[in-house]
Simulated assay, not measured.
Amino acid sequence: MEKEKILPLWAFILPLVAIIIWSFNIVVTRYVSGYISPVSISFYRWFIAFIVLTPFVLPKLWINRKSIFKNLPKLAILSAFGMVMYQGVAYTAAHYTTATNMGIINAFIPIFTIVVSFIILKERPSIYAIVGSIISLIGLVYVVSQGNLKDLLSAGAHLGDILMLFAVFFYAFYGVFLKKWQIKLPILISLYVQIFLALIYHLLFIFYFGLDELNHQNIWSIVYAGLFPSIFAPLLWMLAVQYIGPSRSSIFMNFIPIFTAIIAWVWLSEKWTAYHTIGGVIILLGVALAQRQKIRRSINERTVKK
């Protein structure tokens, strides 16, 4: 049996930087909500990413044309869930809730992924996943109710938090479909085609809602969204998965609520309250427990291979 390879420090910096970029994007989404409509920022974001990627990807499209057309229906579904429904609903949610709440609810993605995997892939969740999901749900209800369940039952949940829950649920479908289909295409080309399809979807919404003009109040937020979370962060994440593995990388997702809260506190002066702390800790404990079986299985598989 060989000794486990010692990974360099920079390999763990890759997912950390990706998480910081995505956390910044949540705060940017909240910040720019008062200056541009959800449809407009979503369209501009993917349009910028499309323009930037075109010179690098275009020469390879013809080579992979057969595989692209073969998988076009699947790519269209992925684009709809990951780039239109998730992003569009999240941008809408930003008008009605805080960036801090958005970051905390975003941590629920692994839990929803377990649920969707059971529905679509028929993967039976482990006892860790079930108990962890219940614990996370308790934490989520505590955060949404702002620490007062009585008020939640009498007044109802906040619209922004409900919308963010739907957004996270859509992203869980995106992740599960990625796993189910495992499309045989270079990742950058797959991303590029999904972005192109997302732009086509947006034309329908633009026809109905219109397109806001770019100005000094929204342009830099749009540029950030189009470059960093759309291109750089996914590339860093893919490298992280390649070097340290998916299980280790997924643990870094738990830092999103923390980084988002810190950035929102510094930039937007959002308050971090006791119910954020209590609910956030409960959610993360549940997520960590739900992921435990997955991580242990990955370790066992590596041991067998040795």
Rank of each mutant, 00 (worst) to 15 (best):
F118V: 04
I162H: 09
A274K: 14
G279R: 05
Q217A: 10
P38E: 00
L197S: 05
N71S: 15
M85V: 12
I111M: 07
Q217R: 14
F228N: 02
L178G: 11
V176Q: 01
W22H: 12
S79Y: 10
P246L: 12
I195T: 03
H276R: 07
V52L: 15
V304N: 14
W237R: 06
V84P: 00
I138D: 13
I251W: 01
V131P: 00
T100F: 01
I162T: 14
L75K: 12
V28K: 10
I130L: 14
Y91W: 10
L191D: 05
L58N: 01
S154N: 13
P257Q: 10
L14D: 04
Q87W: 05
Y243N: 06
F205H: 07
E4V: 03
E2I: 08
T98R: 07
E4Y: 01
F173P: 01
Q293Y: 13
G210C: 04
A198V: 03
F209M: 08
L121P: 13
I258P: 04
V281K: 13
E270I: 02
R302H: 15
L214V: 06
L75T: 03
P15Y: 04
Q146V: 00
P73W: 02
I231V: 06
W220P: 02
A274Q: 11
I6A: 15
L152T: 06
I244M: 09
S250H: 01
M253I: 12
P55M: 04
F232C: 12
A49D: 06
K271Y: 11
I51G: 11
W267T: 11
K305N: 13
I195S: 05
Y275W: 14
S247M: 13
I68Y: 02
V28A: 09
G210N: 03
A93D: 08
V89A: 04
T29H: 11
V52M: 14
S298I: 07
K306V: 10
F252Q: 01
I200Y: 11
L53F: 03
K5M: 03
L227N: 12
N300E: 15
S145F: 04
F259W: 11
A240C: 08
